[in-house]
Simulated assay, not measured.
Amino acid sequence: MPNTPSPTNPIATSAKLADGREIWFFDEEPTLRSVHDERPLEPRAGGSQLRWDRLTATWTAVAGHRQTRTFKPPSDECPLCPSTDGRLTEIPAESYDVVSFENRFPSLSTASVMAATGEPFVSRPGYGRCEVVCFTSDHEQSFVDLPPERVRTVIAALAHRTEQLSAMPDIAYVFCFENRGEEIGVTLQHPHGQIYAMPVLPPRIESLVNAADAHREATGECLQCEVLADEVADGSRVVAENASFVAYVPYAGRWPYEIRVVPRRHVGSLPGLTSDEMGDLAALYQECLQRMDGLDDAGPVPYIAGWQQAPTGREDTWHLAAEIFTIRRAPGRLKYLAGIESGVAFWINDIPPETAAERLRAVRV
């Protein structure tokens, strides 16, 4: 029996684009989907490679084919808008609610065929998957302005894709994220995010894993649960909360304004949330974005938002969190990474986290 559609339980329909890439439609209402991509596309690119840096013990992706990706097209040439009779886009449909599809210019791909190499210069194929998630068919909207039911649909879509991508062979981590604003480096203005299914743990996640494992080994408890309890008890950095989630500025936050959104219940990833928790997350997450935008009158803030989900196989020991931060430290002033930060990753924050939290709480939403 087909599921009853709703923002937290949308109907998911899969199809293929002209070059074989997969596309998923997430519809809030019953919609008859008959998808035909009529574009004469070249075979999809897949020439990326992972190279091992012996000095830092980390992987770097090399993907030369991405130099030809779409760069700041005018709105009437946006590849993420619905297709029309006169112009075919990446979305072969006249309208949609939420869509996720394989990136045409991926950093990682199941089609990567480069051979692995051994010592002294170690490499492996850039295996994985990169997807683009379109939050709405409306080119002029922003995530912060979406109707609440659409925010829930987006989160449900991310949960769906996380569950499926995590089940792919040799995937170690699935990272869902959104970039907003040209200052961040956004080259497509249509409201969208991305998902990377990766064959290795990215360095920051590996660092979080190591800290969590060390704490669990020493105490038998979840580090994130403990930090959340301490932040709630202290209260000075809590920005907002509801029945299921708490949003706070981290005690050692690196960015001028940085918010961490954490579930009260110990749950590893988006697919593990209940329907009520998903609704609470949608409400609090959107409120955090509204508070960011309300900090000053300089217009929408540029931000990066990412979901720190459980690495593959670690659902029981991981604690989900969303991280939102902006590089704007004041109207007309951005935080550029200085030499000490870019060079050796020693962070210096110009705004005390307690001050940031106070200013965020003061925003009327």
Rank of each mutant, 00 (worst) to 15 (best):
E163Y: 13
Q164D: 09
L165H: 04
L165S: 02
L165F: 02
S166A: 10
S166V: 05
S166P: 00
S166Y: 03
S166R: 10
A167P: 08
A167R: 11
M168H: 08
M168G: 14
M168I: 01
M168V: 00
M168P: 06
D170F: 09
D170P: 12
D170N: 11
I171W: 03
Y173I: 01
F175D: 11
F175N: 14
F175V: 15
F175E: 10
F175K: 12
C176M: 14
C176A: 14
C176D: 12
F177T: 00
F177C: 02
E178N: 06
E178K: 12
E178F: 04
N179G: 03
N179E: 09
N179Y: 05
N179R: 03
R180H: 11
G181H: 02
E183R: 10
I184S: 05
I184T: 11
I184H: 07
G185T: 03
V186N: 07
V186C: 09
V186H: 00
V186L: 08
L188F: 04
Q189T: 13
Q189L: 15
Q189P: 07
H190S: 03
H190V: 03
P191G: 07
P191Y: 09
P191H: 06
H192V: 10
H192G: 05
G193H: 05
G193D: 11
I195C: 07
I195D: 05
A197S: 06
A197D: 03
A197Q: 03
A197V: 02
M198V: 05
M198K: 00
M198R: 00
P199D: 04
P199E: 02
V200E: 10
V200W: 02
L201M: 04
L201I: 03
P202K: 02
P202N: 01
P203N: 05
P203E: 08
P203L: 03
R204Q: 13
R204L: 11
I205Q: 13
E206W: 12
S207E: 09
L208I: 12
V209S: 08
V209M: 09
N210D: 12
N210H: 12
N210R: 15
N210F: 15
A211W: 15
A211R: 11
A211D: 11
A211L: 10
D213Q: 09
D213T: 11
D213W: 09
